[in-house]
Design a protein around this nucleic acid. Structure first.
Lengths: 121, 121
DNA sequence: TTTGATAATGATAATCATTTTCATTTGTGA
DNA sequence: TCACAAATGAAAATGATTATCATTATCAAA
């Protein structure tokens, strides 16, 4: 029962591999594709199950879906102006991996974001 | 206009310094304290502004408030059974600090969570 | 003490993402 | 063609959060 609707996956790809369910839905609507919001949610959930996309959270709690295989990176976010800088997370990758192993976890992912005030704010 | 209601702060402390707004509210209700949900949200928001608490997100997107000054730690969460292990994040602290400095950020915080399947799941 | 301005409170309604329900449609094999 | 399971999507339900707005508490000045 793979509900990984290819049109949804395709839209997520074209959205830069990083979008919320609502955004994917609105984008497909705008393009004239006929699809229901429910199906978008189901397709994304299915893609998550199949480990084709990751799920993260925006600051306001909205879920955003990230295509796996996208170059994995983290964010440095300014609490003042909202500016976001993509950063590498080498140290974090190693940290997450070694700790997970240490506790016998498998199939491991992680999130890591840094926030503060940028020099302008 | 400090709305940092001391009863809310006190309740958050007694909840282990780590709870959602709804939980703080329910706890106060159960204890017979008379308070409105709105006030709980406002008080927590105010505490965030005053940098007395941090705000993070549960996996389901619900906001949880963490008392600053609590011994800072991270979580290793099992996606299967929800089990959570508190872990040290030395490597992450350094990573966050050095990257923030590098980009001229100040007043810096961070989140980092690891999730996977524990040995039982 | 009375008055008045201002801030705090909380019940209620509105918002918004997400999930559930359920009837309908589609695909597929017999 | 028929039957049946899977997929779809409209509409309603859910649940956290936020906005409204009338009421109440505070407190300084008259």
């Amino acid at each position: 029962m793979s509900r990984s609707n290819p049109r949804v996956l395709n839209t997520l790809e074209r959205a830069g591999g990083f979008a919320s369910a609502q955004e994917v839905y609105r984008l497909m609507q705008r393009e004239g594709q006929s699809i229901g919001l429910t199906t978008v949610y189901r397709a994304l959930q299915s893609l998550v199950n199949d480990k084709i996309v990751d799920i993260l959270r925006r600051e306001d709690g909205e879920a955003i879906y990230r295509l796996c295989g996208d170059s994995h990176h983290h964010h440095l976010v300014c609490k003042g102006c909202g500016d976001t800088i993509e950063i590498e997370g080498g140290a974090v990758e190693k940290w997450a991996k070694s700790l997970a192993e240490e506790h016998g976890f498998r199939d491991v992912g992680h999130t890591a974001e840094i926030f503060g005030l940028c020099s302008k704010c």
